[in-house]
């Protein structure tokens, strides 16, 4: 218990530190991209340090949902289900952030908010829909089946992502391809800015996950107590 408390404090401190640091690196430390390099909206590109970490955390969170779902189906322990649920909720929040910040940049850079022909955009959108559906499923099913069915759908949903990727490889992607061209076009400052952002968001995710799990556990404890005294 004591260790848990300490761990939480450490995560909180690291989160605050890295979030502050990432604000600094994103806004001040990293250089602006130049119009000569083919960017039409250099200032708007700064949103990249917010957009990419948000997208990263959403994929991480959905990955966690997948793993926890598999674990839950294996031995039906309630804790796996709680983690999966908490992670799915946070994932949806960060996925929403990524989906909102993307078009803000897109409007400035491309001139349009949304491009359906862009694979990454479309797949992130589909992923977002899948996990919204996941949360709705959890809301609609009564408690004894909820965890099991949600776990099954969590697995199907996550497995669907690589499948969607395969089927859309026929389209041309317009998305700035960060990973593939990192050696060539990304300067080290940009890399550091991005890394700090990713680390900050990952700690934020960890912190939020722990809090959400604690709330969920408290809620089920209250349910148990209610049952014990014969309430509803």
């Amino acid at each position: 218990m004591k260790f848990d408390k300490r761990l939480e404090t450490v995560i909180l401190i690291l989160t605050v530190f890295f979030v502050l640091l990432s604000i600094y690196t994103a806004l001040i430390y990293t250089p602006e991209v130049r119009e000569e390099d083919g960017w039409s909206a250099p200032k708007a590109q700064k949103i990249f340090y917010f957009h990419v970490p948000a997208a990263w955390v959403s994929f991480l969170a959905f990955g966690v949902v997948f793993i926890m779902s598999v674990l839950y189906l294996k031995n039906s322990l309630r804790k796996w289900d709680t983690i999966a649920f908490a992670s799915a909720e946070i994932g949806v929040v960060f996925c929403t952030l990524a989906i909102v910040t993307g078009p803000i940049w897109g409007k400035a850079e491309w001139g349009v908010y949304w491009r359906w022909e862009d694979t990454k955009l479309t797949i992130t959108f589909v992923l977002w829909l899948i996990f919204l559906a996941y949360l709705l499923l959890r809301g609609g099913v009564e408690s004894e089946n909820k965890a099991r069915l949600a776990a099954v759908f969590g697995i199907i949903g996550f497995a669907c992502v690589p499948l969607s990727f395969i089927s859309s490889r026929i389209w041309q992607s317009m998305h700035p391809n960060v990973v593939a061209t990192s050696e060539g076009s990304m300067s080290s400052e940009t890399g550091i800015g991005l890394l700090v952002g990713v680390v900050a968001f990952s700690f934020l995710y960890m912190f939020m996950l722990r809090k959400r799990i604690a709330i969920q556990e408290m809620a089920s404890k209250i349910e148990d107590l209610k049952e014990k005294i014969g309430g509803i």
């Binding site: 797949i123 589909v126 829909l129 709705l136 499923l137 609609g140 759908f153 199907i156 669907c160 969607s164």
Partner: peptide, 17 residues
């Protein structure tokens, strides 16, 4: 909500696949 849930669960999964 099963009537609504089938389209909600199914459409994102089959959309691209």
């Amino acid at each position: 909500i099963r009537g609504v849930l089938i389209p909600i669960l199914l459409i994102p999964i089959i959309l691209l696949t």
